[in-house]
Computed example of a mutant assay.
Amino acid sequence: MNSFDILKAIAILLSIAIIIWFIKFYTKETLTKIEQIKIFIIGFVSNLLDTVGIGSFAVIVAMRRLLGVMPDDVKLIGSMNIQAMITALVQMLIFLHYIKLDIITLLVAVIMIALGGFLSGLLVVSVDKKIVHLVMLSAFAFTGVLLLLSQLHILEISGGDDAIRGVKLVIFAVFMLAAGCLPAFGVGYYSLVKTSIFLFGVNPIIAFPIMASASAYQMPVTSFTFIAKKKFYSKSTIIMIFSGVLGVFIAAPLISKVDPYTLKWILLGIVVYNVVTLAKASKQPE
């Protein structure tokens, strides 16, 4: 068994443990058939786009507002992290099988993002809703700026290396720690991680197994606190897991065929929508 096999095995065991934890705190959630269909669509579309590199969190936040489901922000964030734990695990198993990459770069990303998820998961369930809104708004805005600069070719993100070493690796580790804090506030880190990977001159295809593997470890760690505090939608989470896995299997074979430039414009539009809606929400009284 090599290092990658060990990494996969630990991720599987970690997810199983958190699912058992989830079942322990499962509470009944009443949903109409229409609401179930809406949530199924959200899980499918968001994880299909997540698999091809857009990220699922911004899509889920946008779609739930459009479709009028899962209204509580903190419970929504808990559900997003729990469902992403399974879909990210599936992505990890697929990408590590087909894409070769440097084990040290991968381990640094996984460890630091998981640590960020653990620390932020402890914090977010205890902070004021307005602060959660502010963090989400700021992170989405920053992501949007990075994407826009990339699309306008002001910030070039490209490279051909398959590993990060030296001082760059230390800087990369710090950035991964910060990125790992974002999902606890309802913000996916895919675009931020992908941008940092490209800035360090790494081959773009390497971003996919790194992001999926990091998520497979970070999501269970972040989900633990949300589950313990019962900050999640039970039935909605399960629906998103099943439809999300379906989206992953459909999208995975398309990775080599997607147009990254077009996908980034789509993500930018979603991010802008979230910035606008979150800005409006932050101005409304409790």
Rank of each mutant, 00 (worst) to 15 (best):
P260C: 10
I104Q: 07
M176R: 02
F25L: 08
T87N: 09
T195G: 15
F249P: 08
L49T: 08
A141G: 04
I10M: 06
L278I: 06
N274D: 12
S236D: 07
S56E: 07
V124H: 06
V202A: 10
G269V: 10
N2G: 11
Y261R: 14
V124R: 09
I99A: 11
G186W: 02
D102W: 00
K194W: 03
S282E: 03
A279L: 05
Y261C: 00
F140M: 14
L66N: 02
S236G: 13
S126K: 14
A62R: 08
I171K: 12
I227Y: 05
Y261F: 14
V248T: 13
T262G: 07
S158G: 10
S120N: 06
L48W: 03
L148E: 06
L48I: 04
W21S: 05
Y217V: 07
F25K: 15
E286V: 12
M176F: 08
P253I: 10
H133M: 13
N81W: 10
S79T: 06
I39R: 00
A141K: 01
V108I: 14
P220L: 13
L107D: 03
I250R: 02
I250S: 04
F185K: 04
L267V: 12
V258W: 07
I241W: 05
F140P: 01
V276A: 05
M63I: 07
D102M: 00
K280V: 08
F232V: 00
K8R: 09
R64K: 14
F224A: 11
K38A: 01
L169T: 07
S15H: 12
S196V: 15
I227T: 04
E156A: 11
A17I: 14
P220F: 14
I255A: 11
I241M: 15
S215H: 02
L13K: 08
K129F: 09
V74D: 03
F208A: 14
A216Q: 07
S138M: 15
K129C: 09
R165P: 00
G116W: 03
M112D: 06
T143E: 12
A141T: 15
G43W: 00
V275W: 00
I103L: 00
H97D: 09
V258R: 10
A88D: 04
M70F: 01
M92R: 01
P285R: 07
S150K: 15
L93R: 04
S256A: 08
L123E: 01
Y26N: 07
I104R: 03
V110L: 11
F57M: 04
M85T: 15
K230M: 11
L48T: 14
I171C: 13
L192H: 10
Q218H: 03
C181S: 13
S196I: 15
I197W: 00
F57R: 04
A207F: 04
I197G: 11
T222H: 02
F208D: 06
W265G: 10
L123I: 15
S236Y: 06
A58V: 10
M63R: 01
D72R: 02
L134W: 12
G55W: 06
F198N: 13
T277Y: 05
